[in-house]
Design a protein around this nucleic acid. Structure first.
Lengths: 90, 90
DNA sequence: CCCTTATTTAGAAATTTATCTAATTATACA
DNA sequence: TGTATAATTAGATAAATTTCTAAATAAGGG
């Protein structure tokens, strides 16, 4: 969970996640949408991947990134758990 | 939203939020549950307050902290928005 | 007014992070 | 093999963060 919150603590990375929310994108496609060098963007992809928030697949020289919705759900569950621990008791 | 994610990016602060999930606690009560000095804990309270994740009230020399559930809901909404933008269309 | 308790503020040291440029790897293809 | 394209790794620097000790503030009571 630590890596997830660390990954979320950056506006560029949060915007990347938003772009990946509805469809996958290539590294290059994502990179050109930001005012930042490709190596910097590549670093952000690495942090997101380390947190398991995104998954990647290679096709030739191109890498496609996609949101890992499972981990997004895990974060949601963490927040629900913060306050909602008793509602299962009837 | 930036301050919220920044505040969440620390295990001590996340544990504080968890402790405040079900009832309010005083600064001193919270502080003694962690292996950290009071000034360090006070700093964490300040970051959480800056993010509006907690609210405080003073009673004499004692300060009580409580979770601000409104902002917690805002974060949840942010995550829902990440993937779920189309479900309102029928 | 002085003392005690609860808590925060100030300032410093060590660590982590974001970003850049330059160099490298991976893949495809003529 | 040589070249072009897509992307990452390496190394450096500047800025932000966590934690500590020491000092200060706030409130209440004798």
């Amino acid at each position: 969970m630590n890596g997830v919150f660390k990954a979320l603590n950056d506006p560029t990375r949060r915007e990347i996640l938003r772009l990946l929310g509805h469809q996958e994108h290539t590294a290059g496609d994502l990179a050109e949408r930001f005012d930042m060098t490709k190596p910097s963007m590549s670093h952000h992809f690495a942090v997101l991947k380390e947190a398991d928030l995104i998954i990647s697949r290679r096709e030739g020289t191109t890498i496609y990134y996609a949101l890992n919705t499972t981990v997004v759900q895990d974060v949601m569950a963490w927040f629900l758990d913060l306050t909602g621990s008793d509602e299962g008791r009837t």
